[in-house]
Write a protein that binds this DNA or RNA. Structure first.
Lengths: 257, 257
DNA sequence: ATTCATTGCGTCATTATGACGCAATGTAAT
DNA sequence: ATTACATTGCGTCATAATGACGCAATGAAT
């Protein structure tokens, strides 16, 4: 099936395949070059970008739809994919935008067409290992690539708001659960982990206190190897103790009451 | 409009009024007799209960729909109404249940009827002041009343799961934000506040340490009055310092990083 | 007047936190 | 080869937060 055939099928058959009114959008976070990034899709014609998203098949669990989108755009089957908020204002959907957009493909739709109706979208965020991702555009886009979280290009409708809300949620999550597994490679250094935390929190942390605290959670295993090829003292490598990491995910990191 | 007219209108006109596939359900928490309670609706014929819920008008923000449900069931315009999770498994809706249910009213529907389709529901939870609530059943129920959170009767489909998830979320919220305003009356005692925390956390707390910690947040104002009519030493009354309370809501209670 | 559950206010040992010092390491510059 | 320098590992110290518990005061019920 060519791309334009795929678009045609979506437009004409979509209403039979998908739940009406509903979509999912995924904020896919990756960490690279000491920067937190998000995966975005570029519109076919316009210089506008959007979050990876999709519709929900009529008999598909909502979570499964999000996993499917994630899989299609990254090639990954991530465990960490959290639903975090629903965006449901009536004005978050721009009917004319999509109508004009499809007109470029010679597709003329009237007001009642399913794809021009109001959509409520369910936001998910995922933490993935940057190096393992193979970004793949969907039928309706021409490119798929990573962007630094604070330097994203112009985004469709409320997608910037969705990213910000995902970041807020991730920040809160950080205060009661460990984060890092799947965002960092298998082996990483303490400064790398710290940089991740600093990026998410948008705040500098004391190197020594950070190390003391993160080690006290007992979720790390220090390896005997050190990082090679750095222009200074070689730091130790660490990896997550997955057993304790997941235990901490379930039980929280203490704190609070 | 009588009740059965209202049902008829909903059944026959609903598809023109509401977004398809979507509903909202509210877990409305109240605190009374040192117990955390939820507001539930009783089915018209069966001895089965459900959460207050409703559909979303085609041009209505999703949050507004939740507020509307809250207002209709309690008479209150609460500020605290948080969206916490979407429940979207295909099997969470029981088509035959509703078909048989409506048959009792002489309404026969075929498979394609909008109200028998799969619904994805958006869960909200609200904290309200027990004494100010006037429980009111909706068109599809016969009674509306409070139930102790851990002693609820048989609930429709996944509604028990929704309550549990709301409690989980409330517990997490408790660890980084203050809770209590709107769940307690204007003036309350320290033991009452503690009982609220203990109920939510399902855990005993030390009386003296609890007081020290909660006071350290500076969100309380101690009044000169004491509680009257208790069979022992009269405890002081407190009220929330709303300015600082809301500041703490925004900024969090410290903790974490 | 006495009893007794409960309250207000405190102590004390332990642990967590924030701020910072210093020697060791290993590449890069001289 | 020697030195410079950014960065790391490991530590200290003062202060704040936490958990466990003591004790006298209160006030309705006996």
């Amino acid at each position: 099936m060519t791309k334009s055939e795929a678009i045609n099928a979506l437009i004409h058959e979509g209403r039979n395949w998908f739940l009406p009114s509903l979509s999912v959008d995924c904020v896919i976070f990756g960490f690279h070059d000491n920067q937190l990034k998000v995966l975005l899709l570029k519109h076919r014609y316009l210089n506008i970008w959007s979050l990876p998203g999709g519709f929900i098949y009529k008999d598909e669990p909502v979570d499964a739809a999000a996993h499917r989108v994630l899989k299609e755009r990254t090639g990954l089957n991530e465990i960490f994919l959290h639903q975090f908020h629903v965006f449901g204002d009536p004005d978050r959907y721009d009917k004319e935008f999509h109508r004009n957009d499809l007109k470029r493909d010679g597709i003329e739709l009237n007001d009642e067409h399913w794809i021009l109706q109001r959509f409520v979208t369910i936001g998910y965020y995922s933490l993935v290992e940057f190096s393992k991702v193979t970004p793949a555009p969907d039928t309706l886009s021409e490119k798929c690539m990573w962007w630094e979280i604070h330097k994203t290009p112009a985004l469709m409708i409320d997608h910037r708001k969705i990213i910000d809300k995902a970041l807020d949620t991730l920040r809160i999550q950080l205060s009661y659960q460990p984060v890092g597994y799947k965002l960092l490679p298998e082996k990483f250094t303490m400064p790398e982990l710290q940089r991740l935390y600093e990026t998410i929190l948008d705040k500098k942390l004391d190197r020594r206190n950070f190390q003391r605290k993160i080690l006290s959670f007992q979720i790390l295993r220090r390896l005997t190897e050190t990082k090679k090829g750095v222009a200074h003292k070689a730091p130790y490598l660490f990896s997550f103790n997955l057993k304790k990491y997941h235990k901490a995910l379930r039980q929280g990191l203490g704190g609070g009451w």
